[in-house]
Computed example of a mutant assay.
Amino acid sequence: MRNWVRAAAGRVRRDWVSVVEATVAATVAWVLAARVIGHPDPFFAPSAALVVLGETRGKRLRQTIEILLGVAAGILVADVVVQALGPTTTTVFLVLGCTLGLMVVLGASTTLTVQAAVSALYLVVVAAPKGSLMPFRFVDALIGGAVAIAASQLIVARDPLAPLVAEARQTFTDLADLLDRINDALRRCDEDAARAALERARQVDDCVDRLREAVAATGETLQLRVRRRRHIGQVREVEATTRQLDYAARNIRVLARAGVHLTRLHTATPPELALAMNELADALRAAGEAMVHSLTGDEDATECAERADAAALEAVRIAAQLFESQPPLPLIMIIGQIRATAIDLLRAVGTDDPVLGRVDEALGLPESPTPPGADGPPAPRADPGTTPTTMAA
């Protein structure tokens, strides 16, 4: 019982703002529709507000537009069929079939399809069209969506970039801390700790997803604020960085799996590996600070990016020394993932130099000509967590 109470209290602390936000927005939408416009049945205004606020931040503006389109389409179909046949069972069947069929033909999203069907069904079952019903319903949807968007912006009214800054710092910190956990398990040759780190690595995608959601939410907020739109370019840079960070997170997950295999061999971990992992973790932290300073407009962003660049290359140089002792396969795999992570990290901090050439030079590989465009953003690749990994980038 105590555990349940603690869990419930944690959920309340985490989500109380969303509860208050949804309650206030739905109530305000109802008041506007019922008292200001005078709609005798303003059910859809608070419903639309709740539907929009139930969507992830960054998708609420699109959600509002889809609700409006769905309401309009549902009302149109229901109006035509009810006027022709009256409110009967056959009418319900035809209205739902025609509405859903129309949405499928148009390639509508699930949200739009559901809203169209609910609006059409409401008109048939609850309130048959009486001329003035269609504009009232559409206006209700508009009120609910507008109130929901306004409510969602109040939380970030003072500094719309603050949630993104906090999420960016936390994401890079989580990845660096994960590397520290893997490194500590390898130093102690502790298989249980290595497995725990691998389990954490399998959950690390959540932090990248949260950063991606924060990017979308901030972009939506800036689109609604004319004076803040100058920051949209910075948000797009963070979005590009997030893609590279996603690749880096996958590489670290493969590194963690190789670490488990290495600890199972019960061999002493070379000290060079610990140094390389430390440098890579420092590079991640410096890259995170570079992103934060870039968002806040600080001049330290360039200095932090240079530190991340230097630390990533140093990690590769140190890891290259391990080849001299004919390392076992799991250690070779770890070296490969250090290299791959360094590549993605260098691309994330926006270095203009040829990334592959610099990393391979640090690793001691023979220099080879790079085809034009080969050093640009990498093509989407399969999740290394489910496929064998190689030394290739």
Rank of each mutant, 00 (worst) to 15 (best):
L346G: 11
I232W: 13
N251P: 00
A176V: 07
I155C: 03
V235A: 07
G357T: 11
L198Y: 13
R264N: 02
T390D: 11
I332F: 06
A168D: 06
T23C: 11
G376Q: 10
R285N: 10
F43A: 15
R210N: 09
E303H: 10
A166N: 11
T241D: 10
V118M: 05
G86H: 12
A150W: 00
D177Q: 14
L329Y: 13
E191S: 04
E199F: 05
T91W: 04
A319M: 08
A379W: 06
E167H: 05
A276T: 10
G233M: 08
L329I: 13
D298E: 11
L161K: 09
E191D: 01
I182R: 01
V114M: 14
T218A: 04
C304S: 10
A185Q: 02
L255D: 03
T269H: 03
V5K: 09
I232R: 11
R339L: 09
R225L: 11
L164I: 08
R347W: 09
L265P: 14
D206Q: 15
R202D: 09
L69P: 06
V147K: 00
L154C: 07
A374F: 13
E191Q: 08
I155W: 04
A311N: 13
A196G: 10
S132V: 08
C207W: 07
N278K: 15
D375R: 04
V238L: 14
A193T: 12
P129Y: 07
L154Y: 00
A196L: 14
L329S: 12
P42R: 00
F43P: 10
Q170F: 15
A73H: 08
P163M: 03
V238Y: 06
P366I: 03
L96T: 13
P388G: 06
Q63T: 15
V95S: 04
V12M: 13
A166F: 11
V77F: 11
Q170E: 14
V260Q: 01
L123T: 05
L179N: 04
V52A: 01
P372H: 07
R158D: 00
V215Y: 07
Q203E: 12
A185M: 00
E299T: 15
T88F: 03
I65S: 06
M291P: 06
L100A: 15
G38Y: 05
R137Y: 00
V24R: 02
M1Q: 09
L175K: 08
S368K: 13
I67K: 03
A8S: 14
D205W: 12
D184W: 06
A29E: 00
A146Y: 00
D300C: 12
L164Q: 10
A33M: 01
A362Q: 12
E303K: 04
L275D: 14
T221A: 15
G259I: 05
D159T: 10
T64H: 05
D184T: 14
R381N: 02
T296Y: 06
A141F: 00
A287M: 02
G54Y: 02
I334P: 08
S109T: 12
L53M: 04
S368L: 12
A392M: 13
G385A: 03
R60Y: 00
T218F: 03
A248R: 05
L273E: 09
G259E: 02
A33L: 01
A176E: 03
G58I: 02
G145F: 00
L106V: 13
A362G: 12
Q83E: 14
V215C: 02
A312P: 07
L245I: 00
L198K: 13
G297F: 08
V81S: 01
A128N: 09
